[in-house]
């Protein structure tokens, strides 16, 4: 099939960018979206042009490295799918596609479709962990975890940190990400000692990064490749509000 692509080209984080039109012939329906771009890049390289920069790693939908907007939808039109697992059979001959990088202040463009998502890493570093003593591994069943809790935690832990939620959010909020990380540890017995600190610090860090607020539109859950729902955002709010009430913070120096 034949496609017309309009792709955001930007040489570096400070250069101005613009949409550039490319025609791609002989696209096979078996290709993934990224393989289609690989084919285009081969041609660009042979012509001596700069290939299109985009992030990818595992290409099997589990690492969270890839991602850009396809026709105004994060990761493209197929629900619960990363762009690397989006296959060209979902498009038809003659389609016109607009590819743009994630756009929020917290994710500056590095080049073309690649953005810097280290804001998400800093949110995790602020509280998305459980402190344990090193040494011998604890006995596997020493801490019982109720099945329902484990399920909620695992559903939230499915978050691969791709940033599609912040890219799609009309407000530019990564609440689905922050909520997933807070839920993932906050519902487990192992996560209880640091529960308040975690909620306070991760919400504070997200605010610091310029990621804005959740107004419950639900566009994030519509595009989340892992099907994480708004429930994690309610849980983030709940943990945060409770922490504000009960946590007295660090004693004064």
């Amino acid at each position: 099939m034949k496609l017309t692509l309009h792709i955001w080209r930007q040489a570096n984080s400070t250069a101005p960018g613009r949409m550039v039109k490319y025609e791609v012939d002989d696209v096979s329906e078996h290709m993934s979206f990224l393989e289609m771009l690989d084919v285009l890049n081969e041609k660009l390289t042979l012509k001596g042009e700069d290939p299109i920069a985009f992030d990818s790693d595992c290409r099997e939908g589990i690492c969270g490295t890839c991602g850009f907007m396809v026709n105004g939808v994060a990761h493209g039109p197929l629900p619960k799918t990363t762009v690397c697992q989006l296959h060209m059979r979902h498009f038809k001959d003659g389609d016109v596609l607009y590819l743009e990088p994630w756009r929020t202040r917290a994710f500056p463009v590095i080049k073309d479709l690649a953005v810097d998502r280290s804001a998400l890493d800093r949110i995790v570093a602020a509280g998305g962990f459980v402190s344990i003593d090193t040494g011998a591994a604890p006995d596997a069943n020493a801490i019982p975890v109720p099945k329902e809790r484990a399920e909620i935690s695992m559903d939230a832990a499915a978050c691969i940190g791709c940033g599609a939620c912040a890219a799609m959010c009309p407000n530019g909020s990564a609440s689905l990400f922050t909520g997933a990380k807070i839920t993932h540890l906050g519902v487990l017995p192992q996560g209880q000692p640091e529960r308040n600190e975690r909620a306070l610090r991760m919400v504070a860090q997200a605010t610091e990064e310029g990621l804005s607020y959740c107004s419950n539109h639900g566009e994030c859950e519509a595009v989340c490749p892992k099907g994480i729902t708004l429930e994690v955002i309610a849980r983030m709010n709940r943990h945060y509000i409770k922490a504000e009430w009960v946590d007295r913070g660090q004693p004064a120096e």
Binding site: G72, E100, N171, A222
Partner: peptide
């Protein structure tokens, strides 16, 4: 909140669908 939202995305999208909202 509106001011926060305006600051959060300085460069807008050329194309943006509204799925879910």
């Amino acid at each position: 909140l509106w001011l926060l939202k305006r600051r959060a995305r300085p460069v807008g999208y050329c194309r943006k669908e509204e799925t879910g909202s």
